[in-house]
C-alpha cells in the first residue's frame, strides 16, 4: 500500500513537471489582457503545484524517506 502511494506521488511529481510549460500551446500567440495565454497557463499551473505540494505536505510528508515501524516505503 505504502509502496503504491510512493509511485502515485511520483507520477504526480512527473505530471506537475511535465506540464509547467504548456507544450500544447507551442507557437500560439494568443493574448488575454495583454499577457500571452501560455503565460497564464503557467501562472495557474504554479498555483496548482503549490496546492498539490501543500496537500502532499499535509498527508504524505515523510513517504519514501521516514522509516516508521515496518513500512519499507523507502526503497526506490
Amino acid at each position: 500500500m505504502r509502496r503504491l502511494e510512493v509511485w502515485g506521488w511520483l507520477v504526480v511529481g512527473v505530471v506537475l513537471s511535465a506540464l509547467a510549460i504548456p507544450w500544447f500551446l507551442w507557437g500560439d500567440a494568443m493574448t488575454v489582457v495583454g499577457v500571452p495565454l501560455w503565460l497564464w497557463w503557467h501562472v495557474g499551473w504554479m498555483g496548482l503545484a503549490s496546492v498539490v505540494f501543500w496537500l502532499f505536505a499535509q498527508r504524505a510528508w515523510g513517504i519514501g524517506i521516514e522509516t516508521t515501524g515496518d513500512s519499507r516505503g523507502d526503497r526506490s
Binding site: 511529481g13 506537475l16 513537471s17 509547467a20 510549460i21 501560455w38 504554479m46 515523510g62
Partner: peptide
C-alpha cells in the same frame, strides 16, 4: 521573448521544490 519565465518556473518552482523534499528533507 519572455519564455524564460517558463524555464525559471519549471526549474526553480517545481523541479527544485521536488528536490527540496527528495534531497533536502532526507
Amino acid at each position: 521573448g519572455p519564455e524564460w519565465v517558463l524555464v525559471m518556473g519549471l526549474m526553480d518552482g517545481i523541479i527544485f521544490a521536488i528536490l527540496w523534499y527528495v534531497i533536502g528533507y532526507k
